[in-house]
Design a binder for these strands. Structure first.
Lengths: 257, 257
DNA sequence: AAACCAAAAAATGAATGCAAAATGGTCGTG
DNA sequence: CACGACCATTTTGCATTCATTTTTTGGTTT
């Protein structure tokens, strides 16, 4: 994880577990990047990612200031960063809105995530240990159990963790950071839209995961890369089909506030 | 350009016209991020990327304010964004410094770029037109000419453009944006360090490029993905070897201005 | 002479204030 | 009754101001 919040002084020290973007990728041991600005950033990012604001809705500057008990300056800085991360859109003089993900955006995001996971798998095959594979195997069978019990929620969590483990096994912090960023962008969709449709390809997904595990065991890098990309491509199809009827970028004008 | 070098004493009431700026993470229907804030962001980013500040050197807030003719507030916002992009480091109460790229950082960056180009190639094979391939072929032979004439500079430019074309052919704006971001991060190194060593593998690189072109012609997606990743992996080796002797993250403590 | 401590000076981080632009509502007119 | 102009309120963007923190500098001590 990327700790960019360790202030233990005045404000409420919240151990953010959110989505870090690019703080670091530093190779040194100087972890812990305090700054109380990062605190706000993390909290605001979580607030947005968790879906407290409707899709495409306005991000009330003033309101959030009171909510966090700060002035507008640090909040606006955080907004700029969130815009750079792609979570919100910053319109000229019209304030901030949470980014609308249209069909095309989702396709692109899933493809890039596919590419990153593909890369992660390839890199992982170079240096992954038997213990790490064993851990992933454990998660895999756990996930299989949830599949058999038709426990969608737990299945999904195990699934996510497997993919995170693969990314972690790539031993590339830069990759991990970018991956986390993209994951944050589609998290809203993942938990709402993706669910329903994904169920219909449970069996197919499980089979793909077996292939992933198999390739990983054999350290077959480029083969694993292919499988992972295709796996995400299938996920993409499922996710996009879910909001198939809707036009480009108009999921909901949504009542704000 | 919008001349906004206004004296601090005066009000700067400039009717900024909509100048679309190369803003990160922008995909979807409503692109174009005008605002004079984006203007500052772009200019500052260029200023850093172009290498006007020594590696690891301080980013003088006050000085830049005068330079751009603005107050600290918008500049600090831009700094936050640049930090999020990974171009600079923001130390708690100690100001901003241009990020030091150590050996490990370079390895990670090249690998991720490899993953992204690999993805781009894979995607490109799905939809690339004959015309686009022809254009890349043209660049390829142009590059070959420079290779024969031992014209390093032109060779390198053509090379860059080929890779850019492939990324463009992926028709994925999200990918293109992330790729551009990473490219910006290593640009300093690319033009200084990379040169010398890269020369020694010219022949090898040319051969790899032929393979790329061949796979692209046949629209062999996963094959192209493999080749591109390996190609970047070799570049990585060359680049890293160049600053091989140096310890982790200490390329130069650099005398700052 | 080197190290250490203290106070001044500079810089950073955040808050407030103010002008311009946008939003919303009302009134007037066709 | 519908449409458009006008004005008040709200919001955004930037500059300025204030409070800490860091860094430097000068003097002192060992």
């Amino acid at each position: 994880m990327v700790p960019q919040t360790t202030v233990a002084a005045m404000k409420s020290t919240i151990p953010e577990s959110g989505v870090p973007i690019a703080k670091p990728a530093d190779s040194g041991p100087e972890r812990s990047e305090p700054s109380l600005h990062g605190e706000i950033l993390s909290r605001l990012r979580d607030y947005v990612v968790e879906g407290n604001i409707p899709d495409g809705g306005r991000v009330p500057e003033r309101q959030l200031c009171e909510m966090f008990g700060i002035s507008r300056t640090p909040l606006r800085e955080a907004l700029k960063v969130l815009a750079a991360e792609g979570l919100i859109d910053l319109l000229p003089n019209r304030g901030a809105r949470v980014r609308q993900l249209g069909k095309r955006d989702l396709e692109e995001l899933f493809d890039v995530m596919g590419g990153l996971e593909s890369l992660a798998g390839r890199l992982a095959c170079e240096t992954i240990t038997d213990e790490e594979i064993a851990e992933i195997e454990r998660l895999h069978y756990e996930m299989y159990g949830h599949y058999l019990h038709r426990n969608m929620h737990n299945y999904f969590q195990a699934n996510q963790r497997i993919h995170e483990r693969i990314v972690a096994a790539s031993r590339n912090e830069t990759l991990r950071t970018i991956y986390a960023n993209l994951a944050g962008r589609i998290r809203r969709v993942r938990y709402s839209a993706n669910f329903a449709r994904e169920r219909q390809r449970w069996t197919e997904a499980m089979r793909e995961h077996e292939g992933i595990l198999d390739a990983l065991r054999r350290r077959a890098g480029s083969e694993l890369a292919d499988i992972l990309f295709q796996h995400l491509r299938n996920k993409r199809t499922a996710a996009v089909e879910h909001l198939g009827g809707m036009p480009e970028g108009a999921i909901a004008e949504a009542t704000e506030g």
